[in-house]
Nucleic acid binder design. Structure first.
Lengths: 197, 197
DNA sequence: GATTGCGCTGAACGGCTGTTCAATTAAGCT
DNA sequence: AGCTTAATTGAACAGCCGTTCAGCGCAATC
């Protein structure tokens, strides 16, 4: 036996990435075997190596593509305006983007330690670039007197952690719609930088 | 060969837990083998089973003891006073406690998915109890008109995520001392619940 | 100084790991 | 219809996994 009816590279490839994403998110990279991924796709383990160099690349490519897509989407979402408007845009963008891709968000900060050193460095660089987007807004707002902030770096890390945390508990069929969640987080963010409603 | 000079249960037991904690925190539960833990302790893998029923119990016991110690310490740190004072006490307690135990904090929310269902449920119950401490303060403050809050549940989750995030980047030899970090976080928390400085 | 038993070794168990590759099949092209 | 080639199988590789256990050596007790 070999090639099955109607099977193609353009079909199996995405299925492999999707299966890896789902399984890594649910059980963790180290706990998932190539045979498990293959089983989910419907092929034997050996066939996976037509689509990835090795298991590590499967994880790294998912994370890298996620971070690059995040940065590209953020670029599109940048708006003109004062620091407060930009902060609101960043907050709403971050929450919306993260709520739509819970598995990618999850593995991208949960599986960092399973990356080989050079891969880890590459992801960290992308992550830093994203954090800098927020830090720049906070710095500009503080400098302009729009925000009241102590240490800008701590505020950046604290707000990123708060906003990213949303994907840890939000459920699509939960109590509140995504838009209401975004409103609530924006309310907290706005006040935390010293802007009264 | 067998028992070595000067080795005792009271010495090896804690060493096993400590080695497991360090290795789980660094590489993740699934990526660490019993032989690795044994190597760190200085014994053969079989000897570990004098101190734990199995690998899962090693993880679960670390997490359960951490959560129970956290709840016990929190109990000691509760103060009388209005909601604002209580929120400040909670914030400072949380940061101080988490900065002192980075590995335990890390594995306790990173390795949740590696717990067997009943163990997961037990840890989640303890985590919920801790979250409720904060939610109660927020509810009381909002009811008393001290805090200006939208959805209390979201605020609870958002603030917990923000505060716990501190252990993700804080380094003892970093730019700022722990007390200064706590001050900065308290400033953000206070403002986010609508209390102006 | 003999005896007891704790703490540990080292080997073994069955099973799973990531990865490679010759063989095989089917799809697409001429 | 024949040919080429992409896609997959299934077996094999060496090695590691968690866990068990008979046996051994040392410390403490009598």
């Amino acid at each position: 036996m070999a090639r099955k009816q109607g099977s193609h590279s353009e079909i199996t490839g995405p299925k492999v990435r999707q299966a890896a994403l789902q399984l890594f998110a649910r059980f963790g990279y180290a706990a998932v075997s190539m045979r498990q991924i293959a089983g989910e796709v419907g092929v034997q383990a050996g066939a996976l190596y037509n689509y990835t160099a090795d298991k590590q690349s499967l994880l790294f490519d998912l994370m890298r593509e996620h971070m690059e897509a995040l940065l590209a989407a953020r670029k599109e979402a940048v708006i003109a305006g004062d620091a407060l408007a930009q902060l609101e845009a960043f907050t709403r963008f971050h929450i919306a983007y993260h709520l739509e891709r819970p598995e990618l968000v999850f593995i991208s900060y949960m599986e960092l330690r399973n990356l080989e050193p050079e891969n880890f460095a590459a992801i960290e660089r992308l992550r830093k670039a994203y954090e800098d987007e927020l830090e720049t807004i906070l710095q500009r707002g503080a400098h302009a007197g729009v925000f009241v902030l102590g240490d800008t770096k701590i505020a950046t890390l604290a707000l990123i952690a708060m906003l990213t945390g949303v994907s840890g508990w939000y459920r699509k069929d939960g109590r509140l719609p995504a838009s209401e969640v975004a409103d609530q987080y924006w309310d907290l963010v706005r006040k935390s930088v010293g802007v009264v409603g």
